[in-house]
Amino acid sequence: MQDIYIYNNTFKGLLCLIYELLQKKIKPYNIKGLDYTPNLFDNLIKLNLKYDGDIIQKFIEEFGNYNFKIIYYVYLSLNAKKEIIIYYYLKNYYNYYRNLPYMRNLKCVDEALKISKKVSAECHKFKGFTRFKKLKNNVYYAEINPDNDILELLSIHFKRRLKNEFWLINDVNRKIISMYNKKDFEIIPSGNWQFKLETSEEENIFLEMWQQFYETVSIKERENLACRRNFMPKKYWKYIEEVKKEL
């Protein structure tokens, strides 16, 4: 039988579980979320976990800021094996300590570094690709479709940038929405809410101007569509106003 440990789909829950496994020196076959559908050989195990105190603070103290950031970014990724990668990454900490991030010949370290890089790269892309629309009630609204769960990282960026505006960012793929009230943001599931979106009257003026700017600033003699696709993959185009119509 294969021992599959189940956590409650939250980052803290995953940390509590891994902490427990590391303490008791249990080697799991895999770690999965609540929505995991088991196959014939799986033995699902749900531990009754309790951790007094701040588990996140505990992990930062135990493994250091850098390693914590790495595992958090891996957690945000879409990777199917992310939980077990995090487990082995942390487990190996006790073999190499602060040299761990340099052990790139270890599969788990190599994967973890690659995945976390991917997540931060996608977040950086969406700092540029997010497009806001101004609604009638002066709220700026954006829809995004990233692969990884970057909404929190992205919100930190926009909190600094558009600090004196109300804004909403809707992650369409994950059905979560980030709301900012000029002080702080909160991420809540949007479920199957139907948004009544009434854009402000000036919205079309700027959209048209932007689209026209986009067309004009390109130099015809240098056209290179493959190069554009390389930097701005087509999967993101759906919510990018100026290229949407080319899809």
């Binding site: 540029g128 690709f129 390109s218 290179n224």
Partner: peptide
């Protein structure tokens, strides 16, 4: 960083034109 807007040390590309060049500034 200030009342309205901020800059990013590594720069941000907001779009790419048909010639493959980045648009970050108006």
């Amino acid at each position: 960083s200030g009342k309205f807007g901020s800059t990013n040390r590594s720069g941000i590309c907001h779009s790419f034109t048909k010639d493959g060049r980045c648009i970050s500034l108006l």
